[in-house]
């Protein structure tokens, strides 16, 4: 008798599970065919599941606004995997407005001539964006960045022309008669 009861229990419990599965046929799909559907586009045709375009705070690739960066090197120092390289020259003294919501002013005397972020190493932890006093290094919502070659993952944020311009500026600044100021020095971003 037990034998038949077991069989009956097995069949009925499977049927119960199948009923749950069956109900899924009448619900909206949960997934999208990713490369065909642009998930960054809010109006995804034919899709009504829970998936939303990436959120406001999404930690995608890093970008940096080099006109605001004061080359303080804090981001490079906090980064656990050493993927930021900042080199700077001393230039004329100006002030910049922070990109953070408070918009605080900071004095700027150092100008980056090289700002590289190695996205192949970056683990998108966000520690650099938290320490940056001006908020100029921040995440974008971009996450599609396959590259054919490894070195293409190193993003250079300062073009050679811009670096040349800053160097010239720095040289002019250094040439100015300023007895108390030392000449511009290079700051190596690489930690030991």
């Amino acid at each position: 008798m037990n034998y038949f009861r077991n069989i009956w229990e097995a069949i009925s419990s499977i049927a119960q599970g199948m009923a749950v599965t069956l109900r899924q046929f009448f619900t909206k799909p949960e997934t999208v065919q990713y490369p065909e559907v642009d998930v960054l586009n809010p109006r995804m045709p034919g899709y009504s599941g829970h998936l939303k375009p990436v959120s406001e705070r999404f930690r995608g690739f890093l970008t940096v606004d080099t006109t605001v960066c004061i080359s303080c090197n804090q981001c490079a120092h906090v980064c656990p995997v050493d993927c930021i390289l900042v080199e700077s020259e001393k230039g004329p003294k100006t002030t910049v407005n922070s990109l953070r919501p408070d918009g605080k002013e900071s004095p700027k005397t150092r100008y980056p001539v090289q700002f590289d972020i190695h996205l192949g190493r970056c683990m998108y932890c966000g520690l650099c964006t938290e320490v940056c006093p001006t908020g100029c290094i921040h995440f974008t919502r971009e996450f599609r960045g396959a590259a054919g070659e490894y070195h293409k993952l190193i993003h250079h944020f300062i073009s050679p022309e811009e670096a040349e311009r800053v160097r010239k500026l720095a040289a002019e600044e250094a040439a100015k008669p300023k007895p108390e100021k030392p000449v511009a020095t290079k700051v190596e971003a690489e930690k030991e």
């Binding site: 829970h50 705070r57 966000g126």
Partner: peptide, 16 residues
């Protein structure tokens, strides 16, 4: 996945 969405809104990442 829904929990991951909540986390993404909170801190920007879905796994780490």
């Amino acid at each position: 996945e829904r929990i991951n969405d909540l986390f993404e809104e909170l801190c920007g990442a879905r796994l780490t």
